[in-house]
Simulated assay, not measured.
Amino acid sequence: MERRYNFNAGPSALPQDVLSHAQSELLNYQQQGMSIMEFSHRSKEYQRIHDGANELLRELLEIPDDYEVLFLQGGASLQFSMIPMNFLHQGYMANYLLTGSWSQKALTEAKKIGEAYIGGSSKEADFKRIPDLNALKYGENDAYVHLTSNNTIHGTQWKSFPQRKESTFIADMSSDILSRSLPIDQFGLIYAGAQKNLGPAGVTVVILKKDLLSEIPDNLPTMLDYRTHVDKKSLYNTPPSFAIYMLSLVLEWTKKKGGLKEIEKMNAEKTKLLYTTIDGSKGFYSGTAEADSRSSMNVTFTLPSKELEDLFLKEAEEEGFVGLKGHRSVGGCRASIYNAVPLNSVQALSDFMHTFHHKHNI
């Protein structure tokens, strides 16, 4: 079977080596006569996978010892509620930095729990850029400051993160975790749905500084209390075992590729190729994000007319390209070039864009 060029925003491409490995073990995991999906989550076989994924993620991201790593369910969307439930207390306010739809959704959920305000936003610029670090506002009663590191819909990304020793920063890194080196110790909590760079949908990674656990109130529902999952090492209830197994394979693949240093180089090469194609088209393709805020994961662009965009997407699909339609809320086109998207796929897209440009230049 010929593989298609997968540029889906999520669930997104997985490394072909990982898929092949999983396929080889699907019916008979390590000659145990069972699929990994059939093992008890209390078994020694699954425990090795669970612990190995935790250790490898710590190694690749250089997570300090004073942080917990959790494997939860519910996606980033559940974290929108869990975070204020655990850390937004009476007399304090949550500070949200708005850069797109997902940070807006996180703010909406926080306001259902307690008081929250906007400390910075690029909404007035249609979320085409990241807010100026020097223009961000903070309050003395901030419970935490929340940001979304990469914005899949609008194609923007924080290139450097705000720092303030008085503030606890929390970040939704669902769409760019594991794509570049990260200053973990600048954050109190990082969370990420797996379905972009970490693995398939179904597991959510939470990286939590241990000293925040003492701030959690005692009246929370058991499953919504981070301490529950810390105490039970993410095994309070049945975990998404197959998703964590796949996560472990993706982490092994990342390590074999040379870790974050090499992954970041590979992503930079893909990003440069695609943005050069857009910028060199003399306006036929127009990037929607401002140059200094462009995402290295989600490349968003438009064509001169809706008719040409529709034709571009139609012909692209006929050539084997998948997932190039922009989010329904903004339209246009989007190529998500996560870690697992190989350079040859991006080169093929660039070649197709050049060909389409020459055929339909106006």
Rank of each mutant, 00 (worst) to 15 (best):
Q186S: 13
F161L: 05
A194V: 03
P162G: 06
N150S: 15
L182T: 15
H154S: 03
S167A: 13
L198S: 06
L198Q: 11
T168R: 14
R164D: 14
D185S: 15
I184T: 13
F161Q: 01
I190A: 09
T156N: 00
I177E: 12
T156R: 00
S174E: 08
A194W: 07
D185P: 15
L189S: 10
L182G: 06
G193W: 02
L178P: 09
T168M: 03
Q186P: 09
G155N: 02
P162K: 03
Y144N: 00
Y191I: 11
S174Q: 05
I190H: 11
V145K: 02
I153V: 14
L189I: 13
L189G: 11
P162S: 08
I170R: 03
I177P: 09
I170M: 07
K165L: 07
D176A: 05
T152N: 14
I184R: 11
P183C: 09
H154I: 04
T168G: 05
T148S: 03
S149G: 11
F169S: 05
T168D: 04
L189K: 12
F161V: 02
T156P: 03
S174R: 00
N150H: 08
N150G: 09
A171R: 01
T152E: 15
D185A: 15
M173A: 07
T156W: 02
A171I: 12
F161W: 02
I177A: 10
D176Q: 08
N150C: 12
K159N: 08
I190M: 14
Y144F: 09
F161K: 02
K196Q: 11
T152M: 13
R180T: 12
L189W: 14
K165Q: 09
T168L: 09
Y191W: 05
K159D: 10
V145M: 01
E166S: 09
R180I: 11
K165Y: 05
F187G: 05
L198V: 05
T148I: 00
A171Y: 03
Q186R: 13
T156H: 06
T152W: 14
K159Q: 14
S179R: 06
S179W: 06
I153S: 04
P162Y: 07
Q157N: 01
L147Q: 00
S174T: 11
M173N: 04
N151K: 08
Q157C: 07
Q163L: 07
A192S: 12
Q186G: 10
T152C: 08
T148L: 00
I153E: 12
T168H: 15
A143G: 04
Y144H: 01
P162L: 06
L189N: 12
T148G: 03
G155D: 02
Q186H: 12
G155K: 00
S167Q: 15
L147K: 03
G155H: 02
F169C: 01
A192T: 04
I177N: 12
R164Q: 14
T152K: 13
R164G: 06
I177F: 11
S174F: 00
I153N: 06
S174N: 08
F187W: 08
A192F: 04
R180Y: 14
H154F: 09
S179Q: 09
